[in-house]
Simulated assay, not measured.
Amino acid sequence: MTTPVLTRPAGVTTTSKSRRFDFLPYLMVTPVTLFVIGLAVVPAVFAVVQSFFIVDALDPPMRWAGLGNFSKLFQDAAVRSSMANTVFYVMVGVTLSTVLGITAAVLLQRPFRGRSLVIAVMILPWALPGVVEGILWQGIFEPGSGLISGVMSLFGADGGLLLGQDRLLTVALIEVVQVWQITPLSALLILAALQLIPAELYEAAQLDGCGPWASFARITLPLARPGIAVAMVQAVIATLNVFDQPYVLNGAASTGASVTMQTYFISFQNLDFGAGYALTLLITLATLLVSVAVVRLVYRRVEL
């Protein structure tokens, strides 16, 4: 008489196998995790802590300052002026780059001959480093020999100094350069959202008698809001942290200085690293708060 063989039902595992922990996935991501922590998290914590200390390379050691660094920043006229300039950069830059990005994305939404070439050319301003863009536009704004001065001379106008004298004109021209840089990325982000909209929705709207503007207002804009929100957030980050364009085009002049430029001046020219860390912390918090506000106001989950 044979002994019956007991078999487990399919899908049932032993207790030892079910409790076995697989370390391999965690082992694979450990080097990258440690690299990110060492490169980003540790310096960030270091900067936050030292923003509450007096850190002067010429007057060691560090001393507790509390909120003294922050109070000193708001008493500095140059910092307050740069904050006003940065607010202008953010408001104008985010608005213009979003409007122009939506316009470019809508024009590129439907395939046409040469669309890939247009997208490749359009992305060049975003791909160029900010310093290179500043040098290129410096030739355009150059008094006497620049492109704008040459065009103005054709109409009998005097193409004088455009940057550095009038504050509003200076920050406006600098922001034109930055908008020229960040708009291509905004357009591509919004275009990616538009590509997810089914063509059947536009066909149904056309059958219902909706014109192009009605379809844009009732289909395109609502369904593209996730892409628009992402585009606006990247524009907020770029404009709040602008450095290259104002520094290359206008130097250290206060007429166009940004808050990020002030962190450089305070830290490496004045050697007041504590105040520089404090200003960096304020910029980070402002970037985070404004980005969250933009997402809360603009982003809507789309369900087709």
Score class of each variant (00 low, 15 high):
2 T>Y: 12
2 T>V: 14
10 A>M: 12
12 V>Y: 11
13 T>L: 14
16 S>D: 15
18 S>P: 03
18 S>K: 10
19 R>I: 07
21 F>T: 11
23 F>E: 12
28 M>Q: 08
28 M>K: 06
32 V>L: 15
32 V>G: 15
33 T>V: 14
34 L>K: 05
35 F>S: 12
36 V>N: 04
36 V>Y: 06
41 V>Y: 11
42 V>M: 09
42 V>Q: 12
42 V>T: 11
44 A>P: 03
49 V>L: 14
57 A>K: 10
70 F>G: 04
73 L>C: 08
74 F>I: 13
78 A>L: 14
78 A>P: 05
86 T>A: 12
87 V>Q: 05
88 F>A: 09
89 Y>F: 15
91 M>R: 09
92 V>S: 04
92 V>L: 15
94 V>A: 02
100 L>N: 01
100 L>D: 03
101 G>I: 04
102 I>C: 08
104 A>G: 05
105 A>Y: 00
107 L>Y: 11
108 L>T: 06
109 Q>G: 06
111 P>F: 11
113 R>A: 13
117 L>Y: 11
118 V>Y: 05
123 I>Y: 08
124 L>C: 06
124 L>T: 10
125 P>Y: 06
128 L>D: 06
128 L>C: 07
129 P>S: 10
130 G>Y: 00
131 V>S: 14
132 V>D: 13
132 V>Y: 07
133 E>W: 01
134 G>K: 01
135 I>S: 08
137 W>M: 04
142 E>C: 06
146 G>I: 06
150 G>C: 09
150 G>P: 03
151 V>N: 07
155 F>H: 12
156 G>W: 08
158 D>S: 14
158 D>I: 10
160 G>P: 03
160 G>K: 11
163 L>G: 00
167 R>H: 08
171 V>F: 01
175 E>M: 15
179 V>A: 06
181 Q>G: 03
186 S>I: 06
189 L>F: 03
190 I>P: 00
191 L>G: 00
192 A>L: 05
194 L>W: 05
201 L>T: 04
201 L>M: 14
204 A>P: 09
205 A>R: 00
205 A>C: 05
206 Q>M: 14
210 C>V: 07
211 G>S: 04
212 P>N: 10
216 F>P: 01
217 A>T: 12
219 I>K: 00
219 I>W: 01
220 T>R: 02
223 L>N: 07
231 A>I: 05
233 V>D: 00
234 Q>V: 15
234 Q>P: 03
235 A>T: 06
236 V>A: 05
246 P>N: 10
246 P>G: 10
249 L>P: 00
250 N>F: 02
250 N>Y: 04
253 A>E: 13
255 T>G: 04
257 A>G: 10
259 V>K: 00
259 V>F: 01
260 T>P: 02
260 T>L: 14
269 Q>D: 15
271 L>R: 11
277 Y>C: 13
283 I>W: 02
285 L>S: 10
291 S>N: 08
292 V>F: 12
293 A>P: 05
293 A>V: 11
294 V>A: 06
296 R>W: 08
300 R>L: 11
301 R>W: 09
